[in-house]
Design a protein around this nucleic acid. Sequence first.
DNA 1: TTATTTATTTAGGTAAGGCTAAACTTTTTT
DNA 2: AAAAAAGTTTAGCCTTACCTAAATAAATAA
Lengths: 221, 221
Amino acid sequence: MRTEAVEDYLKSIYLVQGELGEVTTQVLAERMEVSAPSATGMLKKLAELKLVKHEPYYGVTLTPAGRKIALEVIRHHRLLELYLAEALGYSWDKVHAEAEKLEHHISEEFEDKIAALLGNPVTDPHGDPIPAKDGTIPPQNTVRLVDAAAGEMVTVTRVAAQDAAQLNYLGSLGIRPAASLTLVAKAPFDGPVELRIGNASHHLGLNLARQIFIRLAKPRR
Amino acid sequence: MRTEAVEDYLKSIYLVQGELGEVTTQVLAERMEVSAPSATGMLKKLAELKLVKHEPYYGVTLTPAGRKIALEVIRHHRLLELYLAEALGYSWDKVHAEAEKLEHHISEEFEDKIAALLGNPVTDPHGDPIPAKDGTIPPQNTVRLVDAAAGEMVTVTRVAAQDAAQLNYLGSLGIRPAASLTLVAKAPFDGPVELRIGNASHHLGLNLARQIFIRLAKPRR
DNA sequence: TTATTTATTTAGGTAAGGCTAAACTTTTTT
DNA sequence: AAAAAAGTTTAGCCTTACCTAAATAAATAA
């Protein structure tokens, strides 16, 4: 059965796979805020449903069927995030929590209607790509701010943080998709980065800075 | 705990109470599409939670706490119905099913935002009253079309049908809130009613006709 | 007023999805 | 290569909300 829990696990498996390359029981359990045995139990169930391949003691991978569901749920989530921001005036730090609940309950008609209303968008308010209905994922910029060279002027493409407090802080500094900034300096030994945004200068810890993706403002060629 | 099932039962108890005056296990079970023992079980649970008073073998009534939850859920439902119709262009026969799922999952912020966007409306697309946040219910017109006198010209205030096919049919005849029509005749022995809407004349079975509420187009005084 | 029908509740069971404690693998350290 | 640590799974339980079958209570009919 395609329960809410099943959808949530598949979504997390997909996302963890993308971030870490492999999906272990423990990491999944942490993401789901659930005990490890609970995760094991669900993985067994998902395997029976042919939604994942589970190699006991090694990890899981999604089957095509599982991946399809994961992408549908992620599409719902990100479309909702954008809709809440655009149509209802939600601030970007609040959209995640609301979308998290609604993503499981909207119909295909609802999905289609908000997608059309938003002009079939390809990114959500954080710059995360919105999977298309056919499972295609729009190309995304994967350059991290922390990998740019000091002195470079860049445009923010994506802020991968989920936490409301972090987003709120970054937003207050003007760091959001489409913002322009200059990477002034990177302190050594995994130290903070210094940014210039307009006339203001800010120092960001690495944990935050690593969540920021960019493209060069003036691409070299 | 305030689970989805709890909310649904409380909502049904409230509505059945309003329609029939008393709420028996069997009627409730039918509404919820559940076996009678299941309903009994839930009533016991709701009684433990102090949300209803359950007199075994006689029926239930809501406590103030139970009534409060019921009204919140109904407010969500009807606000959503109107929002879906107004903001997303849903037809009135589709709003019920979608609202039925979403009503349990929207936050108070979502509720407030759509209420404000809609101008704090007092009725949904079917003419059902939307309870206010404080639990107040807007005054509603309780005159039934079938109780009007033949020959009278009336304005539809409410169409209480939930079924999509019925709503679709009534809509196709032009019968919806704010529509004007004339009750041409009522056939005897619980026969159908004849209506004139614009230039067209229609014959409606009693089951349908009883769902229509009206006010007199030219109130006598 | 007793018998029958109807409504309701009790008894016992199922499936999801969670939990802790204990057992077992795999990996890492010494 | 053996011992310790870390990660994973199994075993056994709990809660929610449903079910069917059987028992009981109330209402109706004979």
